[in-house]
């Protein structure tokens, strides 16, 4: 199946929305309007959009600490995502979760996760439930190169393979686990895909900044998994053009390296590709401008909202009854 012009423009719209959302967060931080910390995916938008748009809306997503791209690629309400980050009661989780602990069951988004590698077994558990329930949905779990060094990654790949779970492991390899480069943290040359061979899981390493390529590979893998083929792993090579969190000084890499990588920024390369594919400059500008406008409006609206009260802070520790999915 080929992507239509409308779909391609929509992908670009989503990628700009993610970039604009995080740039807005940066400015809210510098104005002191946002507390805590946050992990941006600036430069990694193509892998988020390609994967999330490559599966069905009824497939389940599990994300990690760097999840804004995944949330917005699944088309969660930008205003409610922003409200959650701003700690407002109107956020998806009443302001209790924030960036690293956000969930929307209505959108089949099982949550971002603040523990590196923590979401991987949870995703396998969700896949086990789907298998028990004889569902035709699958689970997609995002993690970084750093998480592939956690025990949960290895344990879960082993179990998912043994049990033939309907799960897609998506490693966004951005070359750094916080400050630690993959060459010094991922043995054997810094690639994660070869690790899957030890668990008899098919894996491929792809250029993660090519949204079309990611979309196509995801679609194909998803159908194989859906048809009972067992888990697969996609390693998407990418680069975070920002620091690990907020505005850290990036002492672990050179500005020259960053300049080289900036040339591969999907938000710089994709508009050229769209022109080649026959989109007009006006269409491209419209896709970008509408995305920025959505973020701007959502931010203004969320800023007006109130934070939760003492009741919101202290209730909800225990459930009175089961919440059916």
């Amino acid at each position: 199946m080929q992507l239509s012009t409308d779909q391609l423009l929509d992908f670009y719209h989503l990628m700009v929305k993610i970039r604009s959302f995080e740039e807005t967060l940066g400015s809210l931080f510098s104005k002191g309007l946002l507390g805590g910390t946050s992990h941006f995916c600036i430069g990694q938008e193509a892998s988020a959009v390609g994967v999330v748009q490559g599966v069905r809306d009824t497939d389940w997503l599990v994300s990690n600490h760097r999840g804004h791209g995944h949330l917005l690629a699944r088309r969660l309400n930008v205003y409610r995502v922003m409200a959650e980050l701003l700690g407002r009661e109107t956020g998806y989780c009443f302001g209790r979760g924030g960036s690293q602990h956000m969930c929307s069951m209505d959108e089949h988004f099982l949550g971002t996760n603040g523990i590196t590698g923590g979401g991987i077994p949870i995703a396998a558990g969700a896949a086990l439930a789907l298998k028990c329930q004889k569902s035709d949905s699958i689970v997609v779990v995002f993690f970084g190169d750093g998480a592939s060094n956690q025990g949960t990654f290895h344990e879960t790949l082993n179990i998912a393979s043994l049990w033939k779970l309907p799960i897609m492991f998506v490693c966004e390899n951005n070359l750094y686990g916080m400050s630690n480069p993959v060459k010094r943290s991922v043995a054997g040359g810094g690639k994660v895909a070869p690790r899957a061979a030890g668990y008899a899981i098919p894996a491929q390493t792809l250029e993660g900044r090519d949204v079309e390529l990611v979309w196509k590979a995801t679609r194909e893998a998803a159908e194989r998994i859906r048809n009972g083929g067992g888990p697969e792993l996609l390693e998407l090579m990418t680069y975070r053009l920002c620091g690990h969190s907020k505005s850290e000084p990036r002492v672990y890499r050179t500005r020259e390296e960053e300049d080289q990588m900036a040339k591969l920024d999907p938000l710089a390369t994709f508009p050229k590709r769209l022109l080649e594919l026959g989109c007009t400059q006006e269409q491209i500008d419209d896709a970008a401008n509408s995305a920025r406008k959505m973020v701007e409006d959502a931010t203004q609206k969320a800023l007006q909202d109130e934070p939760g009260d003492r009741h919101v802070a202290l209730s909800g520790v225990f459930a009175e009854e089961e919440v059916s999915k």
């Binding site: 991987i120 086990l128 999915k325």
Partner: peptide
């Protein structure tokens, strides 16, 4: 075996698997 899931020795992950399955209604 579809109700009694015997696992490899992987306490960290099987606990997470229980959590994920519980979130999805098991």
């Amino acid at each position: 075996a579809e109700r009694i899931w015997e696992t490899p020795i992987s306490e960290g992950s099987i606990t997470g698997i229980a959590v994920g399955a519980a979130m999805m209604g098991m």
